[in-house]
Design a protein around this nucleic acid. Sequence first.
RNA 1: GGCCGGGUGGUGGAACGGUAUACACGAGGGACUUAAAAUCCCUUGCCGACAACGGCUUGAGGGUUCGAAUCCCUCCCCGGCUACCA
Length: 845
Amino acid sequence: MSHQNNTDSIIKAVAEVCPHFPHHKAEGKWQKRWEQEKAFSTQENGGDKKFYCLEMFPYPSGKLHMGHLRNYAIGDVMARYYRMKGFSVLHPMGYDAFGLPAENAAIKNKVHPNHWTFNNIKEMKDQQTALGLSYDWEKDIATCHPEYYKWGQWLFLKFWEKGLVYKKEGLLNWCPDCQTVLANEQVVDGSCWRCDTTVVQKHMPQWYIKITDYAEELLNDLDKLDEWPHKVLVMQRNWIGRSEGAEIVFKIADGAEAGREIPVFTTRPDTIFGSTYMVLAPEHSLVETLIAGMENETQCREFIEKVAKMEKMDRTDDSTKKEGVFTGRYAINPVNQEKIPIWIANYVLVEYGTGAVMAVPTHDQRDFEFAREYDLPMRVVIKPEDAEFNTAEDMTEAWVDAGLMVNSAQFDGLPNDEGKKKVTVWMEDQGMGKSSINYRLRDWGISRQRYWGMPIPLIYCDACGVVTVPEDQLPVQLPLDVEIKGDGSPLARHEGFQKVACPKCGAQAKRESDTIDTFWDSSWYFLRYIDARNDEAPFSVEKANEWMPVDLYIGGVEHAVLHLLYSRFFTKALRDVGLVNVDEPFKKLVTQGMVTKDGAKMSKSKGNVVDPAVIVDKYGSDAARVFILFTSPPERDLEWSDEGVVGASRFIDRIYRLVMRFAESLKNEPVVKADKIGESAQSLRRICHKTIEAVTVDIEERIGLNTSIAKIMELVNEMYRFTEKDTINKCDFPVFRESVETLLRLFSPFAPHICDELYEAIGGEGFVLDQEWPKHNPAYLQSETMLLVVQVNGKVRGKVTVPSDADKDVVWEAALKEEQIVRWLEDKEPKKVIYVPKKLMNIVI
RNA sequence: GGCCGGGUGGUGGAACGGUAUACACGAGGGACUUAAAAUCCCUUGCCGACAACGGCUUGAGGGUUCGAAUCCCUCCCCGGCUACCA
């Protein structure tokens, strides 16, 4: 057959009348097939190319919102992409199923939390399936399932063995009317959210986890997380809040407690000679003994009470004035033996440092304001050379910057930052204090006086004390025969649950009735997915080491601190127990932006919620996915637009029509190699390969899903141009076929249903997901000529078309042939000609 | 107050030192239709009444550079987080 004959034969498009992608029917059909053929099972292909793709698991509220859709759409594209790239991909889903809303629903609707939760899980899973998300459902988990929390309890025991668990008194929100502990979210304007009684702070024994043992490592390892958003790293750094300084010991000067030590923490030991008074937090443990029997006792007590109330009302109010009272007592400044007054003030926090500060009003703005208010003594001890002040009287605000030390005995004349170290060393020698590092991070209080949570596997025995539940007795099952009324934990009055024989001595003992913070459950779920059905261990160490770390973790920024910090801590603690060999759980983190409407975050109270289920119902999940991925880059906020979804739906239809027009030929024409092809086919091929390259780079290097879709749209536009005539030369057909197959592959991670539908229509077998991700051929990117911009003095004045291999001289010649350019040059000799190969030429005159 | 984002057409957004406004939405006009929907085509940053053409334009003002939305400095506005951390 001659080439001539080939060009003569043409392939005709089938006549049709604007067909629609029948998404309602076709999407369901594919979802069913994917399920039947286990298309999303984790395939471990043995190689070293693994990709663990994780989206933050949802609380099972029963309904997906737009934030979920966005989160999962991003994750699904990435999971499908890497799978097509030949990676072993782990892409699981589960439910963070313990927590308050289930109990609230129980009180309100008289349904059991267990029933309510599992019902919701089912509904959510159905919705997720309807989105065509490629989860391996054989690995799903629900944290409220005994098979899951059994291992949460087991891990608790490991932490216990490591000495990471301890008990101490903690302050809790307590509603005296409901006789129950309230979570912070249940305290509204200082009152109980249900009965409006004023909430009080109550000291109760609580279990704590020593996360502070890992503070230093949690901080230092942030440097390893080079694929985390900068914002999140900063938030974690601030949360851990490391401060270097000194702990200095002051002594009580007089009274019955004379000589008793009051340590303070300061980051400014260089200012110690300027400490002219001391302030304790109202809750400080020494306050009681200090004020007892003093003249000001009543006044002090009134103040303490006032602060206690203020604190829970609105501590964050920045208009809160610094207030305090004098205890009547004095302390001794160890460096100069000065007697300084001890005050109590609202601006000192009991939780930070030692709960006591040495006040240096001249060099700390808060102390300055307080001292001015109460007329306390001040002394300048740091002075810059060009100081505008000589004595404290000249100051209008505290001097907090660098300077030379003055009024500081043997340290006079030293630059203050040098003084910091020298003073500390000297004080250490004198036994007055020591260098100290303080963290803002507190130990993690995990006790919750609630029902719907993981029981803490501990037993109280009168004879043996606190005894852990033996491993072979796990799980400690959460009893289901309870009545939830909201008046305290039902576990505390559940006899069958509480009564237990002591595992050590066999005597009658009592179970811990507190449950654990739900953050415990979510701190290790990513490890359980790896080996979700293991009934002998939380997960196999070997498998965990294969899959960890999670390569890509996607979720909302609201978890930037707590969940991500606890998970990091768990990973490190489990590493020390020998269960994993990684230091950090999440390699790359993407925090997706909010979905907004009318400029505000979607919320029930604002009434601007759009239900993804309604959108999926109307336009199909492909359209919903494409819209939400196309409209904004993943990390930025996304403004919802009804028209935008229509646009996405239109684009999907457009692809459907294009491919269906030629489906018959694509299915039946023999596949041949492209031989001699025409100019428009060459151009199509070039754009096709350019698109492959661009989409691959966009997805892989920056998760640029919006631009990926834009580039696929450009390819489709080009294909429409190519097929304008309704006929394609036979010799050009292989190029068109290639473009269709490429399009379906490139687009399938975004819109998997339509791509499988069309793939089938053109005679493809199986799922596009199992096809290889296309590779671009660099040779096809070349064209014979290129268009170059010619600038004169930095402004575009013309364009020239030159051969692709043209060098500077050739371009220069071509430029001189352009009338426009010549006119702008005005016969002047160019001062300089800058040539950027393949881009532009700039002529400076 | 501190820290982190962000300011580009009517709108969502492209462009990570090299043609600013890709791609899409919306709008306007046209074709097809008895009509509508759907679809297809054209126009669409602003100004010079139109075209050729020219000027202006990435929150404001400076700077570096042959060349700046992009880098540097100063300032303004919007959003988020955090908040007396000694």
